[in-house]
């Protein structure tokens, strides 16, 4: 069964590529172009979810996004679902990401850009598999 992925990515080309690669691998992906849209889409799917289920298996967030940055979006999502799996994709250096990960929780992973699309798919699939085992 494919994974449900929510991606917050303001680069239209990156977003297009995510869609292509995840759909090719039988996963469904929802794209949001900015932080606020990302939260709105998360909430919209959440409305139809039961109390113990998650609207998405993984939320893939760009660190820098218009209107609300990735960290703010992650905080809002974790307020709604504290154990939501979130993966950051960022081109920032380690120092900036370290500061962010200190604020956020263990359920968050960070991927350093640039990375291959194949690596991204494997990373997300493995993370979800591990989460299911736990």
């Amino acid at each position: 069964m494919g994974l449900r992925i929510l991606s917050g990515e303001d680069n239209e080309f990156a977003a297009l590529q995510y869609r292509k690669i995840f759909e090719k691998n039988q996963h469904s992906i929802t794209i949001a172009r900015d932080g606020e849209e990302c939260i709105l889409k998360y909430k919209k799917v959440l409305e139809n979810c039961s109390a113990d289920s998650y609207p998405f298996d993984v939320v893939l967030l760009d660190f820098v996004m218009p209107k609300k940055n990735g960290v703010q979006v992650a905080k809002d999502i974790l307020d709604l679902r504290p154990h939501q799996k979130i993966i950051f994709a960022s081109a920032f250096g380690n120092g900036v990401l370290d500061d962010a990960s200190a604020i956020l929780k263990d359920s968050i992973e960070i991927l350093q850009k640039p990375f291959s699309l194949e690596f991204l798919v494997k990373k997300i699939e493995n993370s979800c598999a591990l989460k299911n085992i736990h």
Partner: peptide, 14 residues
């Protein structure tokens, strides 16, 4: 550095 690195990801993707 972020601004310079960000477009690299879609380039590799393409």
């Amino acid at each position: 550095s972020h601004e310079l690195k960000s477009p690299l990801n879609p380039i590799y993707g393409f």
